[in-house]
Design a protein around this nucleic acid. Structure first.
Lengths: 201, 201
DNA sequence: TCGATTGCTGAACGACAGTTCAGCATACGC
DNA sequence: GCGTATGCTGAACTGTCGTTCAGCAATCGA
């Protein structure tokens, strides 16, 4: 309300150029890490001038937030599909071990810890994702399937996410000890928690 | 061997100033993230001049590597103590949920993915840590304690590390859904894999 | 005593960063 | 035809970065 009356012009939200910038930024983050996501580098990657990036996104945080929102929307769709399928729990595990998705997600998690403007959005989205997963897991296997033997749904969500990210991070480093064993164990474990439906893929 | 005959002077490895720089760098990384670990910022933190930092560490990678080595040595000692105790598996879990240690470790993992010079060291150290943990776990609970029910040692190491890091990362963001449940489940799970010795702390 | 070694400094270099802004065309509503 | 909104540009500002290097002052070995 007491913001300066004269505001700089900002490009239309529907612009194709704007969308191009968003996808170029996501690429830079995936390939070079969040620390490399400067407006100038993004411009170079997209074949545009730096000032054009700032025409659509006044500050770098604006850009980063837009990229996160686009990525989150995609993730949401993938999760929704996984959870709505015949085998929500295994769908979730497949989601958490999808490396192209995990790459972006890991970068934004790291970014969020250091950038207050990003943190709020990422934290809210994480909570929302977990809540949705909890509902789907409850539907699939109940509150607890076998007393102390299986974790409550929220814990299962965190555990699968954590293991998936560890597999990704170490994989990126070239560390592989225990990886196939851990994946195999998770799958057996899920079989016990919640046997796969007949012809489920 | 075919390096330039004239090399710049470098400060002594035993210098107190050098040690000061290393600890200041670790603090910067812990507090502000690896992306903030510039030689100039480190100098500011330590109350020194930027050129003095470069007197001891010609390149930033040299500095980062020294910090990693110091941290790794500390970690090694902690792990060694945990694994040598009466209850190695629970000691390991306590190590993985030690947030001050995990903070540095997470930053170096991220750094390693982007800096080739760091990657080699971090990857080698990760593999070595896992190998040592595997030996201790085998000693504590055998190859597999109960057939399909428990993971092989290398998988257990990865799983505990992954869950610990997830708890830390989400905690730093302010996300807490499922955290107490996940911790509680891990502890019950470890009880089943390997009952705690009588008076173990 | 004096030369060499050691710890440290100041100034500078080129690169890259975020951000601003006046102003150029072009297209569009009227 | 004309004013105005829109997409875009070039140049500039300010700041931070890694890194180099000549050289100062103190100390130390002989």
């Amino acid at each position: 309300m007491n913001a300066p009356a004269i505001k700089r012009r900002i490009g239309a939200e529907s612009s194709e150029t704007r969308a191009l910038i968003v996808t170029a930024t996501a690429e830079v983050i995936r390939d070079e890490g969040y620390a490399a996501a400067s407006t100038r580098r993004v411009a170079l990657r997209a074949g545009l001038k730096p000032s054009l990036v700032h025409y659509y996104f006044p500050t770098t945080d604006d850009l980063l937030l837009a990229v996160f929102e686009a990525g989150a929307a995609q993730s949401d769709a993938m999760i929704e599909a996984a959870l709505a399928g015949a085998d929500p729990v295994r769908g979730l595990w497949r989601f958490f071990t999808d490396s192209s998705r995990t790459a972006l997600s890991v970068e934004f998690l790291a970014l969020a810890i250091r950038r207050p403007a990003i943190r709020a959005k990422v934290a809210a989205h994480s909570e929302a994702m977990r809540a949705r997963q909890v509902k789907a897991i409850k539907r699939a296997i109940g509150e607890r399937i076998a007393g102390t033997d299986s974790p409550p749904p929220a814990a299962l969500s965190l555990i699968l996410a954590g293991i998936g990210r560890a597999l990704f991070t170490e994989g990126a480093l070239g560390v592989s000890a225990g990886h196939v064993e851990a994946s195999a164990w998770v799958e057996q474990w899920l079989d016990r928690l919640c046997p796969a439906p007949d012809g489920a893929d």
